[in-house]
Design a protein around this nucleic acid. Structure first.
Length: 842
DNA sequence: AGCACGCCGACT
DNA sequence: GTCGGCGTGCTC
């Protein structure tokens, strides 16, 4: 009997073995299958076929496969229930990539495969409950919990168990008891596969309709005696104004018109129905793709005009083109200062690769924040480009994915999950702003989009280009090692100078003007000057809210989150004190919750406060704020940025969101409040993050004809990340930071794995972590283990957390040891989060 | 006893 | 993630 290995949507579970029933053809690698899983039926993906593992699943999968055969010799192997796809649903290349992720990031194969799946690809059984006659009869006499559930079912309609569960706790157990007593029946129908396409109704003129079109109305209607309408009679019809309008519109549209479009012109469905009854038009349904470019808040800028390349750009393009032309794997770091024209290089390179008949994948950190790159590619490769990101609806993502799968596009552009786009014949992967931490997924599978892109490019023998003004330590290190090519763009297009940077030592400011200063005199003056000149300013503070804590002067208590070890941030507009980690919030208290004292003081400040301070600088100054609090609604950020670009605002205050990729030609000043936010964090990337943020935001100034200036406020003017950012000295920062990483044994000097153990108390978490750590230290290990210690956020969402680190140069050995130790302790494993190559260790 | 509820382990 | 089994502790 042939067997298949199937990835099922369950975390931390390896592939399961199912038998292929005799009447079924063996499914292909990457095909969807329906399989029994416990009492459920779920969709799985075939990741290995027959007794031997498929070559595409890689050596690791092969190992786990054979061991699984041994493990399961006792367990019953179930038959798969159905093969959903005759052909692979996920291409073999993507199955391989998912297997690599499961192995490298130490997660379940199901999670890894799920990350690569489009929406609506899952078919699953869902539990429904229905009341029985016995249940109806016994309803009144039942104890409370059971009666409550039965009453919900009293209408007789089956209700989904998950829906019932929302009505209270313990519903699942109650349902089970009711079913055992014969008071309800449980059914498990398969659900999934909803309408794949949006359908629209399209009206077409018939031959008769063409005949009557344009004819002048006559006073006497002529309908043939048999009730039909012949060509001559049509001529004689008296048509209403709306009806004639419909025919007129349709006569100019040989492909027909959407009924929706006609409705907008005043032609109702009733009118069309009447015309259809007369035989003048027909209405058909047509499948359409949803257009993700269609509802952009602002028109996509027309950037189809090819810009003239600088000598540097030409040289970069030649080198990249040569690498792409080899048809072999290659990786290159495109290190281009802000405003050096990386996008134009990407576009031309992509064009070359597409002309050579290969696909191009473009990754960007967040499309909503950087629509320019997406828009430009959309325009330049019009019609042959697909877009993938989380801001799209399920339906839109579905359509885009299937267009790619059918081979209808040459270019895919999207956020990190687009790295799994089923693009055939991949020839080029571009990772724009490759240093951006948005590429790291902070939930399982905790993959890094940039690193997966490199792995995929290697498998596809493609070129991967990592572009940034401030490359990550890892990528630049690889370039220095010679593993990646390094291609610099050192000058801005049109030789526009980089912004001059002025450092303001806030300690001097506090000494002169008191400890409550938020905006230094230098920055205030610079903002006023810009306003007088009709130029714009951007002010950055990477901290949301109005005040960072509420402090009682009487007893010294600080308002803390009940679930997390952080203070609550005051959001004045919302009148709430809120936790930024678990979203807990309360109304801002008038009295201390500890001592009932009324002398409460709000300390610390965030963007909301800065917005108010900036607005107070100049009467009538038009200030807006961009942070997660002001852009909740989809498209809100686009609207704000458009108003700013159009000159309807003078100053934009915001968090790091405003530092990314935007091009505002009229911005000549960038202010940074508290440049050291983040430097105090217990994270080995703190300095790198600060350097990136400051360099990127300074790059926002002076992108037009007028030179830019940045004013950077800090209490650590001597810190190397701030010093180097002010000089825009990437190489200097890299050297200093690499020295720090080497001396402290952090990436890229070593590989790092972070493990966080959660438990009900900190002591329990520490004890469990200690057990894992001592098992990892057996004396001969080729790695070092640091910790355990309470995690920097020791309490998060109600759980206490302890963490430890594994450092070394043999990542595979580290991972293997950690997994073995966890596998032997399943009760600890379920509460442990393993993060390979963590982006942040907070 | 009957019931509600929460925890834990299995899922091929 | 979902489900079922089981132990605990409460109520009638």
């Amino acid at each position: 009997v042939p067997h298949v290995r199937v990835a099922v949507p369950v975390p931390a579970l390896e592939a399961l073995t199912y038998a292929v029933p005799a009447e079924s053809a063996p499914p292909a690698l990457g095909a969807r299958v329906l399989v029994p899983l416990g009492t459920r039926v779920v969709t799985g993906i075939v990741v290995g076929t027959d007794g031997r593992d498929d070559e595409a699943a890689g050596p690791t999968a092969a190992r786990s496969f054979s061991s699984a055969i041994d493990d399961t010799s006792a367990a019953q192997v179930k038959d798969l229930l159905d093969v959903v796809d005759d052909e692979p649903f996920l291409p073999g290349e993507i199955v391989t990539l998912a297997s690599w992720i499961a192995d490298y990031y130490a997660c379940g194969i199901g999670e890894a495969v799920a990350a690569a799946m489009p929406p609506r690809a899952w078919i699953e059984s869902e539990r429904y409950a229905r009341i029985t006659p016995a249940g109806r009869a016994g309803l009144a006499t039942l104890p409370q919990a059971r009666r409550r559930v039965l009453e919900l079912l009293a209408s007789g309609k089956p209700i989904r168990a998950n829906v019932l569960a929302r009505q209270g706790r313990g519903v699942h157990a109650t349902l089970q008891a009711l079913a055992a007593g014969g008071l309800v029946t449980i059914t498990r129908p398969l659900v999934g596969q909803p309408a794949a396409f949006r359908t629209v109704r399209v009206a077409h003129l018939t031959a008769q309709g063409h005949g009557v079109q344009g004819a002048a109305p006559r006073p006497h209607a002529a309908v043939a005696p048999d009730g039909g309408v012949d060509a001559a009679a049509v001529d004689a019809l008296a048509l209403g104004a709306r009806q004639r309008l419909a025919l007129e519109l349709l006569s100019g549209a040989p492909d027909g018109l959407h009924t929706g479009a006609l409705a907008q012109k005043g032609v109702s469905a009733a009118t069309l129905k009447r015309l259809a009854a007369l035989g003048l038009l027909t209405i058909t349904t047509r499948r359409v793709e949803r257009d993700p470019f269609g509802h952009a808040a602002s028109p996509i800028p027309d950037m189809t005009a090819r810009l003239e390349l600088t000598g540097e750009q030409t040289h970069a393009l030649e080198r990249l083109g040569a690498l792409a032309g080899t048809g072999r794997f290659a990786a290159a770091v495109l290190h281009g200062v802000t405003g050096s024209g990386k996008t134009e290089v990407y576009l031309r390179l992509a064009d070359e690769v597409v002309r050579a008949g290969r696909g191009v994948l473009v990754l960007v950190p967040e499309i909503a924040l950087t629509p320019a790159v997406a828009g430009t590619f959309g325009a330049r490769f019009s019609g042959r480009v697909a877009i993938q990101h989380s801001g799209l609806s399920d339906g839109e993502r579905y359509d885009q994915w299937h267009r790619v799968r059918r081979g209808e596009v040459d270019v895919v552009i999207g956020t990190r999950s687009a790295v799994f786009a089923p693009l055939p014949r991949l020839g080029l992967v571009i990772v724009d702003e490759e240093h951006d931490s948005a590429y790291k997924q902070e939930e399982s599978p905790r993959y890094h989009g940039r690193d997966v892109a490199v792995v995929r490019a290697r498998a596809a023998e493609a070129l991967v280009v990592l572009g940034s003004a401030t490359p990550s330590m890892e990528s630049y290190h690889n370039a220095q090692n010679g593993r990646y090519a390094l291609i610099p763009l050192e000058r801005r297009v049109l030789d526009r100078p980089l912004a001059t940077v002025r450092l303001v030592d806030m300690r001097e400011e506090y000494a002169a003007a008191g400890p409550d200063v938020i905006i230094s005199e230098a920055l205030a003056e610079a903002i006023r000057t810009r306003h007088e000149r009709g130029e714009q300013s951007v002010v950055l503070l990477n901290r949301r809210g109005f005040a960072t804590s509420v402090f009682c002067r009487q007893c010294g208590a600080v308002l803390e989150c009940p679930n997390c070890s952080v203070t609550l941030t005051v959001h004045r507009a919302a009148r709430r004190a809120r936790c930024h980690y678990c979203n807990y919030s309360i109304g801002v208290p008038k009295a201390c919750t500890a001592c009932t004292g009324t002398y409460l003081e709000q300390t610390g400040f965030g963007t909301e406060r800065v917005e108010a301070e900036v607005a107070a600088l100049v009467p009538g100054l038009r200030v807006a704020r961009v942070d997660r609090d002001t852009i909740r609604r989809r498209g809100a950020i686009m609207t704000l940025l458009e108003r700013f670009r159009a000159g309807q605002l003078d100053v934009l205050v915001g968090t790091q969101m405003i530092a990314k990729g935007h091009d505002f030609p009229r911005v000549t000043l960038v202010g940074v409040i508290s440049a050291d936010v983040g430097l105090g964090l217990a994270d080995f990337r703190a300095a790198e993050r600060t350097f990136h943020l400051l360099t990127q935001v300074a790059g926002r100034a002076g992108r037009g004809a007028v030179a830019g200036e940045a004013v950077v406020q800090t209490i650590h003017p001597q810190h190397y990340s701030i010093r180097h950012a002010c000089r825009q000295d990437y190489a200097g920062f890299y050297q200093d930071e690499l020295m720090f990483r080497r001396s402290m044994q952090y990436p890229p000097a070593v590989a790092l794995i972070n493990a966080v153990v959660a438990a009900g108390t900190l002591d329990a978490a520490l004890a469990d972590a200690r057990e894992l750590v001592s098992a990892l230290r057996w004396g001969g290990e080729p790695y070092r283990v640091l910790g355990p210690a309470p995690a920097p956020l020791s309490r998060l969402k109600g759980e206490h957390r302890a963490q430890f680190f594994v450092k070394g140069t043999h990542r595979a050995a580290m991972r293997k040891a950690l997994l073995a130790v966890l596998q032997a302790r399943p009760e600890i494993r379920r509460r442990t989060t393993v993060d390979v190559d963590p982006a942040s260790v907070l």
